[in-house]
Design a protein around this nucleic acid. Structure first.
Lengths: 236, 236
DNA sequence: AAAATACAATTTGTATACAAAAAAGAATCG
DNA sequence: CGATTCTTTTTTGTATACAAATTGTATTTT
C-alpha cells in the first residue's frame, strides 16, 4: 500500500468525485484549497492541478482569483441533458454492442451485481455510485474517444439528477428502480449478443424511465384534501 | 494592452492551440516545459496548469514523470471520428438553428468572410484555423453543455485531419473547397431561417464531402504507367 | 564489441515563500 | 442608522528552491 504523493492525489480526486456525484458537495459549493491540501497531505500546487483536471472533466468550475466551485446545475441544464443524453447513450450502447471485450462484459456484470446489492440494502449514495459505475463501463466498451467526453459529462449530472429525483417519496419509486435494474440486465444481454439495435432501443427506454421519474417528482399528484380542510402536515 | 501573467497564459494557450491545430506541432510531439516557460515569461507552475487544462480539452496527453505530448492521432481515431462527427454535428446544427442569437449569426458571417478570404489568398494553416473558427461559432450557438465537450474534441481533430488531407495535390481539391464554402453559406442561411431539418441535412453533407476528400487522398487514382516501364519520378 | 552497470545530467513533481487580489471588518460621512 | 471609504485579514496566483524520477553517457564486465 503506497502512500506517495501520487496516491494522495488519487485519493483527493476520488473523494471529490464521490462527494460531487452524491451531492454531499452541492452544485455551486466552494472548495477550500488550504483545508483540502491539509486534509490530503498535499501542497497547494498538486492540489490545484487536480482542480484544473476535474474542471476539464466537468466536475468543477474555475474562476480566476476566486475559489473553485462544484459545477452548477440549473433547470436549463436539465433540459439540455434530456436533449443530449438519449442520442449519446444510444450511440454508446450501439458501439458497446459492437466492440465489448469478454473482460469488459465481466466488469459490467460485476457492476450490475453491486448495483443490485445497493438497491436492496444500500443508501441512495451507494445506488447512485453503483449506477454510475455501470454506465461508465458501457462507455469504456464503446471505446470512441470522441463520444466519451460528452458521455462522461452526462454521467456526472446523471448521478446528480438521480440523487435529486430518486428519493423514497413516491410510491412508484421502488418499482421504477427494479425496472431500471431489469433494463440493466437487458443491456448486458444485448451487448453480450452483439445486438446493436436492441442496445440502442434500451438506451432510449432507460432515459424515458428517468424522465418519467423526474416528471413524477416535479409534478406530483395533487393532494387529496377537501376544499377548506387543513391538510395534516405532521402525521402522528 | 496588458502584459500581466494572465494574458501571458492566454498567449501560451493560443500559441499551443494554433500550433496543434495546424500541425506545426505534430501529434505525439514532446513539449519542453523550461523552453516554453522561458519563451512566454511564465514560471513552470502556471505553465503546467495550462498543460493540464489543454489535456482536458484534448489537445495534449499527460503522462506522469514524462513530458507532455501533443495528443496522438491514429487510423483508429479516423474511423471513430467519422462515426461520431455526423451525429454530433447534426445535433449541434439543429440546436444552432433553434437557438442562435442575432449577435451569434453576425459572428458566424464574419467567420465565413475570413474563411472565404483564406480560401483565396491564405495558406493551408489560415484555412484550417478559419474553418475551425466557423464551426466553433456553431457550437456556441447550440449552447448545449453536454454536446460541446465532444464537439470541441471533434473540432481539434477536424482541423488536423483537414491539414493532412486537404493538400493541393488532387485536381479536385479547389473544387471541394469551394463546395465546402457554399455549404457554409447554406448553413448560415438555414440557421438564420431557423430551419432545423435543413441544418441537420447540411451537417451530414458537410461530412460526406470531407470523407470523399480523404478517400481521394488515401485511395488515389492508379498511376497510368504500362507494365515494365519505369515511372518518371522526377519530372523536369 | 555487446551487454550490463554505475554515474552524471536533465527533466518532472512538490513544497514553500512571496506577491496580488478579494473579502471582511473598522472607521467615517451623510 | 445606513451607506461609503479605508484598513486589515484572508485567499488566490506565481516564482523559486528542492526532491524524485528519467534519460544519457561513461565505465566495466564478459
Amino acid at each position: 500500500m503506497k502512500d506517495d504523493a501520487k496516491s494522495r492525489k488519487d485519493a483527493l480526486r476520488d473523494h471529490l468525485r464521490e462527494s460531487i456525484l452524491t451531492l454531499r458537495l452541492q452544485p455551486g459549493a466552494d472548495l477550500d484549497e488550504v483545508y483540502l491540501s491539509d486534509a490530503f497531505g498535499l501542497s497547494r500546487t498538486p492540489l490545484r492541478e487536480v482542480f484544473r483536471q476535474m474542471a476539464g472533466e466537468g466536475y468543477l468550475d474555475l474562476r480566476t482569483n476566486r475559489s473553485a466551485r462544484v459545477s452548477e446545475m440549473s433547470y436549463t441544464t436539465l433540459r439540455d441533458f434530456f436533449l443530449a443524453a438519449p442520442m449519446i447513450y444510444g450511440a454508446i450502447l450501439r458501439l458497446a454492442a459492437q466492440n465489448a471485450t469478454r473482460a469488459q462484459i465481466d466488469d459490467l456484470k460485476d457492476a450490475q451485481q453491486v448495483f443490485k446489492h445497493a438497491l436492496r440494502s444500500g443508501s441512495g449514495e451507494d445506488r447512485a455510485l453503483a449506477n454510475n459505475r455501470f454506465h461508465d463501463v458501457t462507455g469504456e466498451m464503446s471505446g470512441n474517444v470522441y463520444l466519451l467526453p460528452s458521455f462522461n459529462r452526462l454521467l456526472i449530472d446523471h448521478a446528480r439528477i438521480g440523487m435529486t429525483f430518486y428519493r423514497p417519496q413516491t410510491a412508484k419509486m421502488p418499482e421504477n428502480l427494479s425496472e431500471a435494474s431489469r433494463q440493466h440486465d437487458a443491456i448486458i444481454a444485448a451487448i453480450e449478443a452483439g445486438d446493436e439495435a436492441a442496445a440502442a432501443q434500451l438506451a432510449e427506454d432507460h432515459w424515458n424511465l428517468s424522465r418519467d421519474q423526474i416528471e413524477m417528482f416535479v409534478m406530483p399528484a395533487a393532494l387529496d384534501v377537501p376544499l377548506g380542510a387543513a391538510p395534516n402536515l405532521k402525521p402522528a
